[in-house]
Design a protein around this nucleic acid. Sequence first.
DNA 1: CTAATTTTTTCGAGCCTCGAAAAAATACTG
DNA 2: CAGTATTTTTTCGAGGCTCGAAAAAATTAG
Lengths: 414, 414
Amino acid sequence: MSVGIRHDDLRRRNRAMVISAVRRAGQPSRTEIAATTGLSHSTISAISSDLIREGILAESKASEPVSLKRGRPQVGLALNPEAAAVLTVVLSLNFLSAAIIDYAGQVVAEEQRRLDTLTMPRDELIRECMAIVRRRLDDPDLDVRSVARIALAIQGITDSPARAMLWSPITPQTDIAFADMLEDEFGIPATVENDCNMMAVALRWRDPDRYRDDFIAILLSHGIGMGLVLKGELFTGTHSSGGEFGHMIHRPGGALCRCGRRGCIEAYAGNYAIWRNATQMSEDSQPVADVSDADMRALAVRAREKDGPEREAYRKAGEALGFGLGSLFALIDPAPVAMVGASAAAFDLIEPALRKAIAQTAGGQHSGSISFDTEPNELPLIREGCAMRALSFVDQQIFAPGAQMRPGVRKNVA
Amino acid sequence: MSVGIRHDDLRRRNRAMVISAVRRAGQPSRTEIAATTGLSHSTISAISSDLIREGILAESKASEPVSLKRGRPQVGLALNPEAAAVLTVVLSLNFLSAAIIDYAGQVVAEEQRRLDTLTMPRDELIRECMAIVRRRLDDPDLDVRSVARIALAIQGITDSPARAMLWSPITPQTDIAFADMLEDEFGIPATVENDCNMMAVALRWRDPDRYRDDFIAILLSHGIGMGLVLKGELFTGTHSSGGEFGHMIHRPGGALCRCGRRGCIEAYAGNYAIWRNATQMSEDSQPVADVSDADMRALAVRAREKDGPEREAYRKAGEALGFGLGSLFALIDPAPVAMVGASAAAFDLIEPALRKAIAQTAGGQHSGSISFDTEPNELPLIREGCAMRALSFVDQQIFAPGAQMRPGVRKNVA
DNA sequence: CTAATTTTTTCGAGCCTCGAAAAAATACTG
DNA sequence: CAGTATTTTTTCGAGGCTCGAAAAAATTAG
């Protein structure tokens, strides 16, 4: 059963709508907001004057781009940077970073740190994360009270309510309830997000024309990850962050994967798999723990130079990715794809076999029209995604509070 | 941009909520509706008295199950069967059926017909569909004006707005815009639905406890189809009905599929594939056009009797389905599965290999807890799903009309 | 400086939902 | 069998929200 709409929900939802319109459009005038939301001018006027009085929005007098039209000039509304702040934490292989972002989305402060996540004991890993958050919050320039949300992104599987890391390739530890820990320690609401999901979120903010309602972000790295947006919403599994594209089965009983199973896409397309094939090791051999970006770049150079095991390794990676995408397209129909991560720089080596494989699948009818974009640097993307996710939470849950959905809200399938 | 909520949407949505509560619960009292929707008694009272005055609901005096409690007895609200009617059409291999369903969901009239869909020319196929609809609408007992919606379900791929059949295994014809044709011919709004999606819809109405927010319905028939419900909503592709589980790739370059490609799950688990393997034909040989249910039953009997090619064929089917489900579970997390269709009766032969395969995949961690249900008869399920889908449309769009969503409504991904 | 134009605010009307109280309908009680 | 308790349903006034129309504000064109 869907829950009925109470009268007080109305204002709450329309407030959220106005905030979100401002966040998306930058500096829209009240008139523009009325147009995009479909609400009347009077309503927008009332809501925005509330929001300005509360210090959430501000009239932007700064940049007046002299409206060439005659008539009263539109006055842009902008997010007030001081209305709140959020903190993002990105935890990836041997690397931890944190940043404070103001309400308008600008990075205020940042810190990066190398650490040996693979060997680090559980307590120390947690302690490092807590410590970097504490250092950012202790920044004397920062009004701690304004930090309204923490978003921690991590490679690996998180649970569906975004409370905990369930499993991660960057550490042998499992089931770390980061969200609870952060909330207990700092009293600030927190979520734990999957890195690839955050990449997808960021891509949508960066290029809403290309990445609109349906698209796929694939992380080509030591492992293979995916962030999936369908019908304008981030797709997650029913229990976990889901979208474990890298562990769809490419060849039943095939190459040994880092996850211990056989034949996963990752066991052909992850850096370790490309490395394993390029060095002509057996597909049954244990994946190496890490391949440096420099080694992978050297591999790509050799693969471009001459036909040999290196080129063949990339071909196999492309084939695995292609058949995987083909299966995915069978389920969700073809959609734009972004290839993210260091190995996206070698996408020229991967693409031919990938396209050839897709052409042999149900998605193949449109294989020509499927477009791939590459973005070698995943970390900024992940941080941006975290920031937008945390800010959207503030927009909707803190600055437009009220009747929250109860548990057990069900939709009507028919 | 999501669109703002207008004041008049409020009543519309809450009306829809009340109708849907009655449809789901059968004969709920006003008090029960207030509880499930979270709306106040006064609001429910006002809305339901409107609905009764408009002839959409009726107070059910018939079955008074003498409320053992003291106090004023609850009076149940029920859908008024005469408020409207819908027409369902199910087109499957060599078979066409149509039914009139009253607003309360009861079948009023029904007609079934055999026809040779595989060889029938395009015009004749369309003519047959139109004719069966016309005959049902011409029924003198029926008030034609009350037929508010037509839902046509067909095996194969339909487009995402449910207007046309794009491709179907039951006919060589493609791209038939049934919805437009029906609307032009009869002036009644119509949709074209994928058969497996309707199965999923029906399962949810039949057993909402088991098939609640996330589940999978798989049709084991000549081909392999899937209906998928995720987060309480029917999952469709971005352009088509999507969910082409049968054409996910099981073995790259493997057995020849009916679709002309190689290695699809269907090329191992469809009836024709089981038949091909059981009769020890090459995996490269052309799929047969049809295998009778009797032949398949005989095959299952032989497979149960002794180990041999028949049993091996079922084992291969189970393996393909298992690896496919494993890949699917990697994307969406494990969920309850319903196996529907004639071959579901042979699920005992399929299950062992299927479970063994799932155990080798990412979903395998929970392979023991994944439960399978079987339902050998798909046709009633498809018709029920069509009926519920059409009725829900009437509930929401006709009896709770008003500000419809505009195109271009976007949600906030972050 | 005045008129035209466009944006934004103000104000009253019309709905909608809600809570409280009243009305209705039954079971219990002596 | 009448009166009381109990539960459901309706009624009614209050408070809020959005809307349209009109007014106010701010600018350009002439």
